[in-house]
């Protein structure tokens, strides 16, 4: 059973994330400071996020958790970013011209689509895993599983090899990334019923294999 630290940014609801981790047999620990991360004994770190990217990144910087996340990923410990927790990893975003943590090269851009494509991109859409052997995609159909999305911006990694999953909404966009044991999804696994729980199960499995 692995202990997973879940970062609390103050605004967003973490209950779905912690509950999802409990359901798949992991032990979630909500953390608000670097000291709490260290004391948690966690072998995996989750950065969830809804709301405004500006607030998410500002909160991470103010608490010192930005450095914790950076070190965690630099040492290839299991990390999972969700939604804004994915976008925060990149260099900059068109959403309010926010400077991100810059852990991964790339930027976050707004959907530019014909008017029949409603923005936010909201609802269940199919993700095709472009790294089908990734441990995060274990037990999931590589050619398509439906996950729940709600977002107006998406990540464009500079290095296409980072892309773990693609989704189509008036054109392909990056729905998930992987680099070593750093993972992030634009969709919400904790809102994606059984297939989403499988993502957390896979992540917790990685975290359980030691650091």
């Amino acid at each position: 059973m692995s202990t997973i630290a879940v970062i609390d940014n103050g605004i967003c609801n973490l209950r779905s994330v912690t509950k999802a981790l409990e359901v798949i047999g992991a032990v979630p620990r909500v953390v608000r400071t670097p000291a709490e991360v260290a004391a948690s004994g966690a072998t995996g770190l989750v950065l969830p996020g809804v709301g405004a990217l500006r607030d998410c990144v500002a909160s991470l910087r103010a608490t010192g958790l930005a450095a914790t996340v950076r070190d965690w990923i630099a040492t290839d410990r299991p990390f999972l970013g969700v939604c804004l927790g994915m976008q925060a990893l990149f260099e900059n975003s068109e959403e309010g011209s926010v400077t991100g943590l810059g852990i991964l090269p790339g930027r976050v851009v707004r959907f530019r689509r014909p008017s029949e494509f409603k923005i936010p991109h909201m609802g269940w859409n199919t993700v095709r895993f472009t790294q089908p052997h990734s441990p995060l995609a274990s037990g999931l159909a590589p050619d398509g599983e439906a996950f729940y999305f709600v977002h107006s911006y998406y990540c464009v990694p500079t290095d296409p090899a980072l892309v773990l999953g693609e989704c189509d909404y008036g054109g392909a966009f990056c729905a998930a990334i992987a680099r070593g044991r750093c993972f992030a999804t634009q969709f919400h696994p904790e809102k994606s019923q059984a297939k989403g729980l499988q993502i957390y199960r896979n992540f917790a499995g990685l975290a359980a294999t030691g650091t």
């Binding site: 605004i11 809804v50 709301g51 405004a52 607030d55 909201m122 709600v150 977002h151 107006s152």
Partner: peptide
């Protein structure tokens, strides 16, 4: 919308 995001 500004505080919690338009999506919610």
């Amino acid at each position: 919308s500004d505080r919690f995001g338009a999506q919610c």
